[in-house]
Design a protein around this nucleic acid. Sequence first.
DNA 1: ACATTTCTGTAAAACGTTACCCACGAACAC
DNA 2: GTGTTCGTGGGTAACGTTTTACAGAAATGT
Lengths: 345, 345
Amino acid sequence: MDKPSSPSRRITIVDVARHAQVSTTAVSKVLRNAYGVSPTMQTKVRQAIAELGYRPNAAARGMRGQTYTIGVMLPNIINPFFAQILDGLTDQLGGTDYQVLLGPGCNGEAEEARVTHAMIDRSMDGMILIAPISARKHLESVASTVPTVVVGRHGHSPTYDTVADDDLTGGALVVNHLADLGHQRIAHIEHHETDPDRLAEMPNAIRAAGYRHAMQARGLADHIDIASTTYTQEGGYLGAQQLLARPTRPTAIFAGADIVAMGVLDAIAEAGLRVPEDISVAGYDNTTFAAFRPISLTSVDQAGYQIGAHAARLLLDRIAARGRPTAQIKLSPTLVPRRSTAPPR
Amino acid sequence: MDKPSSPSRRITIVDVARHAQVSTTAVSKVLRNAYGVSPTMQTKVRQAIAELGYRPNAAARGMRGQTYTIGVMLPNIINPFFAQILDGLTDQLGGTDYQVLLGPGCNGEAEEARVTHAMIDRSMDGMILIAPISARKHLESVASTVPTVVVGRHGHSPTYDTVADDDLTGGALVVNHLADLGHQRIAHIEHHETDPDRLAEMPNAIRAAGYRHAMQARGLADHIDIASTTYTQEGGYLGAQQLLARPTRPTAIFAGADIVAMGVLDAIAEAGLRVPEDISVAGYDNTTFAAFRPISLTSVDQAGYQIGAHAARLLLDRIAARGRPTAQIKLSPTLVPRRSTAPPR
DNA sequence: ACATTTCTGTAAAACGTTACCCACGAACAC
DNA sequence: GTGTTCGTGGGTAACGTTTTACAGAAATGT
């Protein structure tokens, strides 16, 4: 005689145990497929679970064991590049019991701290931080509390794994492509960065470094020309305006991100110039926007899917063996030439 | 003499209580600013919390009370429109103790079920479902378990609140704008829908209905021409190809979403036609893509920010008073005319 | 001055799950 | 036949918070 005290109380492990005529411990063991449970017990419990439609309460689990939840923090959700990373992530995690939950887009250190804390408070089993801007110290402190993988940020840490694209090479890819086409006055729009920590770790800074090195390597050191704004459409617009106002205009602009290139194209159109006839433009990230045929923006592909997949694997590894030494995975970007770049006239 | 048993055990309410020389109950009351706590107690406890850097364990809270977590499910994260909704949502929730967590983009009923269940398992205090495609029955079942607001889906339910844009009006806005410009052969690309339930509730179906009604109202019933594909760039591309192959080509295409318009523009460019000289194009959603000057796509603005803000308010209301009757908020869209629409030649 | 109400604070019992430890029988080695 | 191991299952005590019930002090009314 089951007596459901409240009309629609949630089924608990106790209900399952009673229904299957076993102890709650046994049910718990089956749920976690722990050691020491016979095939008979397996089927008996699994059947009871199915019949009752039981689902474990994550909060209760979190108090003793794991929550089977992985937190992902990302700076914003509009960048299609992040969507690719997420796809790689969720595909990799698809077969496991883990569920991914995202923090809402957060820009600024304060919001990042808020989100990371919120995730720690909710006893996430692991965290993936995508392109965080927080001070390294904060990342370390998060990682020392919960298994963590940092994506899209260079520099290696003793506490967290990293997965990133080789932005130095990426920057060089663009410069070489444009130089091969015959360009000399190749300008760059970067995300302004002053903090020394971040100068060494943030992708934007490394891309700019890649640009500089490659320009030097091609003997174009004298033509190095950088507009320092932000990685936004607005930033691209303002940066391009600066560059177009130079006494001698650049013949090519390398925007540090596709979203920046959008602003650049805007400013160029406004100035009455044509792409690529008057000026070549290249972006970075190979977003759907770049692939859009009427735009057809030369860009650098970061293999976001692979980045996500690698991050997921590293995280699962680290959850299983928290002590293991950290790994740094670096992937190679590829150039995707399109119609926005052509030889200078 | 505090003896921290483990090297870095997390601070609990017990530690705070001991440090402030009060009971754990008192601390709990302060945390929830519950009734019956003196100003003295307030300051004493708050100081202890600050000194120890205590943060409540959400899992433990979830077992008895609330988790202070709101789950948001959205179909994908690349649509900038959803970002606007989220902004409205988080701004509205900013002052409260609630934290928003997003389910990863999920398309398909199976994935939606997975995410909603995962959120229920994690005892979320409330859920916001954005443009869900699941059967109504499933939405009802979710809403009967946890306070729920459904965004971007029409039809009213006894268990959940809804916030949506008036898509009927939205569709009419576009038709009237094009008809005012002098167009007659105005075609539409819709997201194919057969399920009767969804035909009455999904925005895509209602937009198509708005198109039909407005065409009739303007005496253009004979020119109604619908290509039925999907709300994707690919769908727009294929739909436009169909429409362009008609014996008499339409002079204007109303794409059901900006992402669809992207594919339309692509197909038009490929066919060697110009926008708006040869054919006018309008989208829906007013994404950043539409606002991008070189594209300059006429579109319908859905006031995503307001939608999000309203949804948040309704949800907080419902959490406070679960029994209250459900509300349906309908917002008016506005047309944003740009350069992609012009009088026919 | 006494009875009654209101206000503060505490103790103890949940909440649903997992971890730890122990008991039992069967199989095995001597 | 006696000890030892192994495989299987259960009992019980956590985990950190909120809720309920209650006691004492202070304030109020008569």
